[in-house]
């Protein structure tokens, strides 16, 4: 392994620049400090497990990365460029897609309209832009089919009719088909059946193999240890661990999470 100048480890043989670089980021909600001095790099083509107990600040960190909230202090770089203006649209334009449990689909809109929400295709009639409903229908129907959703799903139906697992699969499908560079999944398997969970994890690995950066958030260390390349642990808003998967067993990592408050912020030595 190579240890970077900032003391972070990354896979050997990839002396690349990080795709996303978080430097000394802090965030407070009012006077509650949700993140404190968090620095972490993410590289293209890796699957990073971002782990920590409920309330550790995982969602807060990815809300910053996906442009929903600006950090109170510190810096965020994407592909070497410092992000000054934090806006979801900007993150999407940079090719970053965040899949969140409760957010991302408007229940009142059709499956097709949800698929294209924010990037609706238009065709011009008399020079005026109108929604290209044919394209919306066909492209979303193809995705519904390719990702093995029920055949009875009609893309003109409201998305509210889909089950939780179907919605989650649909969100991942949407993220994949729009050729993104970064896919962030926030607790993607909560409330899913065992089979649906396996399916989502398979998708995460496939995405990484296609060269994407996948940040996978969970509080289940055993599940993520099986598929991740690297594990980052947050505890009370601080990064406490950042190790390649092979450097520590799932049991050892679980111990860190369990005794989080007693662990120092120093990273385990890896060389």
């Amino acid at each position: 392994m190579i240890t970077g100048s900032d003391g972070q480890s990354r896979p050997a043989g990839s002396p690349k620049k990080p795709l996303i670089s978080i430097k000394n980021v802090g965030l407070s909600y009012g006077n509650f400090q949700a993140l404190t001095d968090v620095s972490v790099d993410f590289y293209q083509g890796e699957l990073v497990g971002l782990v920590g107990d409920n309330g550790a600040g995982k969602t807060t960190l990815i809300r910053i990365i996906s442009g929903i909230i600006p950090p109170t202090s510190g810096e965020v770089y994407f592909d070497g460029e410092r992000i000054i203006k934090f806006h979801p649209k900007k993150a999407i334009d940079l090719g970053l897609e965040c899949i969140q449990q409760a957010i991302g689909l408007c229940d009142n809109l059709s499956v097709g309209r949800n698929y294209f929400l924010g990037r609706e295709p238009v065709r011009r009639i008399l020079g005026l832009p109108f929604l290209d409903k044919k394209k919306i229908r066909e492209a979303s129907a193809k995705v519904v089919h390719d990702f093995g959703l029920r055949d009875s799903v009609d893309v003109d139906d409201e998305i509210a009719l889909l089950s939780g697992g179907e919605k989650q699969t649909f969100k991942i499908a949407r993220a994949v088909t729009f050729r993104n560079r970064v896919i962030i999944m926030d607790e993607p398997t909560n409330h899913l059946s065992v089979r649906e969970r396996t399916r989502v994890n398979e998708l995460a690995v496939q995405l990484k193999q296609q060269g994407l950066l996948v940040i996978y958030i969970t509080h289940d260390i055993f599940q993520i240890h099986r598929i991740a390349d690297r594990i980052v642990i947050l505890e009370n808003g601080r990064k406490v661990t950042d190790v390649p998967r092979d450097a520590m067993s799932a049991e050892a990592l679980e111990g860190i999470i369990r005794d989080g408050s007693r662990t120092s912020t120093k990273e385990p030595k890896v060389s």
């Binding site: 979801p88 649209k89 991302g104 689909l105 408007c106 009142n108 809109l109 309209r113 990037r119």
Partner: peptide, 20 residues
């Protein structure tokens, strides 16, 4: 597109925002 955005905002503002 404007109409779609309007309906999306009315249906679920957080989701609409997350889609840009």
């Amino acid at each position: 597109r404007f109409g779609n955005h309007l309906l999306a905002l009315g249906g679920d503002p957080a989701s609409a925002e997350s889609r840009g």
